[in-house]
């Protein structure tokens, strides 16, 4: 490699006196510029700004997911909205969830709550701006229910 560089410099120095040498230098400069552009693009692509927006979306999803979970901690007549998952309990109903969501997001809120893939409560039409949370809750008998809660504020 070093031998190559020395030879390149020596020949390069001699050839500057010829027209061909100038052509050669032009060619070299072109290749260098192409290389720089190529490498720059490569580096920029490696930064992947698309991933940054994905991360932002992921952070948003986590924030809203946690927010949705907190609705299930709201106390209702000595119980919690989470008790909706308990089929034995009749005192907590969809109307309680509806009241909480209306208070927080406004009257136009659309939502859908499914328990073990069965629709439990829903209201309104869904658009693009959807918050979604998926989690598990036990019922009094010890069965675990899969809750999927989607809200479109």
């Amino acid at each position: 490699m070093i031998w190559l560089l020395i030879r390149f410099i020596l020949i390069g120095g001699m050839i500057l006196n010829h027209k061909a040498g100038i052509w050669g230098l032009n060619f070299l400069a072109s290749v260098a510029v192409i290389t720089i552009i190529f490498v720059s693009v490569f580096v920029l692509v490696s930064l992947m700004p698309g991933d940054i927006s994905e991360v932002k979306a992921s952070v948003n999803q986590v924030n809203t997911g946690s927010q949705l979970i907190n609705f299930f901690r709201i106390p209702v007549r000595g119980l919690l909205i989470a008790d909706l998952a308990d089929k034995e309990k009749k005192t907590v109903g969809c109307s309680d969830l509806d009241t909480a969501l209306n208070y927080f997001y406004g009257e136009k809120v659309a939502y859908k709550l499914t328990i073990d893939n069965k629709l439990k409560c829903s209201k309104g039409d869904f658009f693009d701006n959807l918050f979604r949370s998926e989690f598990y809750l036990p019922d009094y008998n010890g069965d675990v229910k899969k809750i999927v809660f989607e809200v479109c504020p």
């Binding site: 940054i52 994905e54 991360v55 952070v59 946690s66 979970i69 598990y136 809750l137 010890g142």
Partner: peptide, 28 residues
């Protein structure tokens, strides 16, 4: 870039889910 941070946030979210499950379990 940011993948690990997002994952950390996801783990926090997982923690939130577990906390709710634990609270309900403890009550029952």
């Amino acid at each position: 870039i940011g993948d690990q941070e997002a994952c950390l946030m996801n783990s926090y979210y997982e923690g939130d889910k577990i906390l709710l499950f634990v609270d309900q379990s403890a009550k029952f």
